[in-house]
Design a protein around this nucleic acid. Structure first.
Lengths: 128, 128
DNA sequence: ACACTATTTATAAAGATTACTATGTAAGAA
DNA sequence: TTCTTACATAGTAATCTTTATAAATAGTGT
C-alpha cells in the first residue's frame, strides 16, 4: 500500500462522483506532482481485480470508476455526462431467463438508464 | 446509396453476428479492395442516426453494431466475446423509477448480461 | 457542358489505454 | 548490516479505435 495507491483509493471512497482515470490523475497532481498516469491505471486495475472498484464504459469516452458499496444502478445524462446512482431491486430474474434461453452460465449483468439531468433540462428549456 | 453503403447494410442484415467496424471492413475487402475504414465508420454513423443500426460498446474493445429488428437484449461471453440475442419484456418500470428518484427525463436504458457461452463452458471443463 | 452536392479515399490526428524499461523502495534472509 | 527478491512507480513509447481533414470522384439536375 503505497502513498499513491492509498490516495487513489481514498479519492474513490470520499468523492462520490464517478471519476475517470484522468480526473483522479489531475485531482492528485497537487499532492503527487510526478505521479504517472500509468500508476493510476495500474492501481485502478488492482482495485478492480479484487472487486473494490467497478469500471464503467460509456461509448467512446473514458471509463469511469466507482467504488463498490451497495448494489445500485446508474443513470447518465446525455447532455453533460453526469452519473447519478439510484436504487432498484436487483434484476435476478432476467439473469435466470437469459441463462435458460441461451445456455450461458450467467455471471452478472449491467444496466444503465440514459436521459437528461434536471440541470440540463432547465438549461435546454431556457434556450427558447 | 453507393455500392459500399449497400454492401455494409447488406452485411449487417444478413450476418446475424454483431460485427465490429473492422469485421465489416475485412469482410468486404474482397469486393471493395480499396474501400477505406473511414467509409465503414461514416456509413455506420449514418445508419445509426436514422435508427437502422444500434451501436454497442463493451469495455475497451471495439464497438459492435447490430441491425435493429425487434426489441431484444444481449448476453455476452466473457471468454470469447460472442454476443447472443435474447428476448425479455422491456423494462419500462425501472425507467419510471429511475426518473422519479433522480428527476432525470429518461430517454432509454441499456442492459447486458455477462457470462460464459456453452462452447466456452465445455472448453473450460475439458481443461481438467 | 457546368455547377452543386454528397461520398469516398487516403492519411493525419486525437484520445484512451497498455506495454516496456529503468529506477526506486520496502521486507526478509543470511 | 548487507544482499536479495519482489513489487510499485515514473516516464515514455506504442497500440488501438475512432474522428477530422483534404483531395479526388461520381451523380444529379440545369
Amino acid at each position: 500500500m503505497t502513498p499513491q495507491r492509498q490516495a487513489i483509493l481514498e479519492y474513490l471512497v470520499t468523492e462520490h462522483s464517478h471519476p475517470t482515470a484522468d480526473d483522479i490523475y489531475k485531482a492528485l497532481s497537487d499532492r503527487f506532482p510526478n505521479m504517472s498516469v500509468a500508476t493510476v491505471y495500474n492501481n485502478l486495475r488492482v482495485f478492480k481485480d479484487i472487486g473494490l472498484v467497478q469500471e464503467m464504459n460509456y461509448g467512446d469516452a473514458s471509463s469511469r470508476f466507482d467504488f463498490v458499496t451497495s448494489r445500485h444502478y446508474h443513470i447518465i445524462c446525455d447532455a453533460c455526462g453526469k452519473v447519478v446512482d439510484f436504487n432498484y431491486p436487483v434484476l435476478d430474474e432476467i439473469e435466470a431467463v437469459a441463462s435458460q434461453l441461451t445456455g450461458f452460465k450467467v455471471d452478472r449483468h449491467r444496466l444503465e438508464v440514459y436521459g437528461t439531468c434536471p440541470a440540463c433540462q432547465t438549461e435546454q428549456a431556457h434556450k427558447h
